[in-house]
């Protein structure tokens, strides 16, 4: 892009792994730990976050030229809180059981650092298309992270995936995976794994090519 900001495509691909909100930016940890004890709850949360992220990015991007520096955060917060309220009400109206399961973690999307960070870093500076691409990329990254953690916790803890049994019936469900300690441990180990893979990739990319290749 001419003004030094990443292009639309770059915004999208960045969100998936290089700037993954959970494993790289370490933002939005609260819902990551809280709703990942089953895949369906995790995916509903991803949909809710996607809705709020995309809508706030669009609105912020549309009004980006009117924003004054010291009113920015106020405007972002107002926008995000309004969309979270809408998302919460929609969930309560159409998927009531899931909304009860997610409980207070849907309103906590308001203070989810991912959304304010994206508004600040991208939406307030770039066109609507780039902002939407950024929101979609971050959502995919967030979804992948949550899916990874929720899969581990649900398969080991309940023996099911999306509610369907996948483990043989002799599997003694590791109840600890469903409880808070399992959440922290899974996230820590997966973060370690992601760091390890990231370092290996970067080392390979930076390694000098062998002669004659």
């Amino acid at each position: 892009m001419a003004n030094g900001l990443p292009s639309t495509l770059k915004r999208f691909t960045n969100g998936i792994l290089p700037e993954n909100p959970v494993f790289r930016q370490i933002l939005g940890i609260c819902p990551t730990l809280a709703v990942t004890n089953s895949m369906d709850a995790a995916m509903t949360m991803v949909v809710a976050v996607a809705f709020v992220l995309i809508c706030s990015n669009i609105v912020t991007s549309l009004i980006r030229n009117l924003l004054k520096p010291h009113l920015r955060i106020l405007v972002f917060t107002l926008t995000i809180a309004a969309f979270v309220t809408i998302a919460d009400r929609l969930l309560a109206a159409y998927v009531y059981e899931m909304s009860k399961k997610l409980g207070p973690y849907v309103p906590l999307i308001i203070v989810n650092c991912i959304i304010i960070a994206r508004c600040e870093v991208c939406a307030s500076r770039q066109r609507v298309v780039a902002s939407v691409a950024d929101a979609l990329g971050q959502t995919v990254g967030f979804g992948l992270a949550l899916a990874a953690i929720a899969s581990v916790r649900e398969i080991l803890g309940f023996g099911t995936w999306f509610g369907l049994p996948v483990m043989p019936s002799i599997w003694p469900s590791w109840v600890i995976m469903i409880l808070p300690p399992g959440a922290f441990l899974t996230l820590g180990l997966l973060m370690g794994g992601a760091n390890w893979i990231g370092r290996a990739w970067r080392a390979r990319a930076a390694a000098p090519r062998p002669a004659g290749a």
Partner: peptide
């Protein structure tokens, strides 16, 4: 402040509709 007020009015209307 007009921007904040305008946004507040819009969102207020949207929320009332919801």
């Amino acid at each position: 402040a007009w921007l904040v007020l305008a946004l507040a009015a819009c969102f207020g209307g949207a929320l009332a509709g919801v």
